[in-house]
């Protein structure tokens, strides 16, 4: 009599269905993905009950950091290049093609116009080092040196459909915001959006 051989039966599982699900979800996430932009500074926005969404394209974002530094950014690479071109003409600063390329990849920046070429050179030679360069913020204070107003003007020249959004940090002081608002109002821009987080409205509240 032969010894009873235990039947070696590996538990088997059909992975095909699971694989299908995984790839279906993957496709969904790839198609809906909108990557987080590398921002010059992390900004924690206050929240509001407003339900209006920030537009996806044709938008200019003026960010106010927690230390009161002002950063500027537009969403489209073509607009960024056009804007840089305009600034280079009015300010008389020449940029090389490589510098322009680096500039068009920046989601936002907080560097005065004079030190822009130097900052972009870091990006040309070593793109990873760019984050480590301290950014002093765009000057907004005095009227003659109000570079923010120049950027806003040139960006709007490059893309006339640009909408304007201000993204301020919780702890940023009001006078900085006032300066930003003054730069906008000086150009007759009287309507803009404030980017906020979303919070639930109080119970029983209804929008009209």
């Amino acid at each position: 009599m032969p010894a009873v051989k235990p039947k070696r039966n590996y538990p088997m599982m059909d992975m095909t269905a699971m694989c299908d699900v995984a790839f279906l979800l993957l496709t969904f996430f790839i198609l809906t993905a909108q990557f987080k932009a590398q921002d010059a500074a992390t900004i924690e926005t206050p929240s509001s009950i407003s339900a209006i969404k920030v537009p996806d394209k044709d938008i200019m974002i003026i960010s106010i950091g927690k230390d009161g530094k002002v950063y500027f950014g537009v969403d489209n690479q073509v607009t960024r290049l056009g804007m840089l071109e305009n600034i280079s003409q009015t300010e008389g600063i020449q940029f090389t093609d490589k510098q322009k390329k680096v500039f068009s990849l920046q989601a936002n920046f907080g560097v005065p116009i004079r030190s822009l070429p130097q900052w972009l050179n870091v990006g040309v030679t070593n793109p990873d080092k760019m984050k480590e360069v301290p950014q002093p913020g765009i000057p907004t204070d005095s009227t003659a040196q109000n570079e923010l107003a120049k950027w806003i003007y040139q960006a709007r020249r490059a893309n006339k459909d640009l909408r304007i959004a201000i993204k301020g940090d919780n702890v940023a002081k009001f006078p900085v915001f006032k300066d930003v608002m003054a730069s906008l109002q000086a150009q007759n821009i009287n309507k803009f959006n404030l980017i906020t987080g979303t919070e639930a409205p109080p119970a029983g509240w209804k929008a009209d």
Partner: peptide, 17 residues
């Protein structure tokens, strides 16, 4: 890698200068 919640915005209109 994706931004989960899209931020909302409140519009602010200021009078003409």
């Amino acid at each position: 890698a994706t931004t989960l919640s899209k931020p909302s915005s409140m519009s602010l209109a200021v009078p003409d200068k």
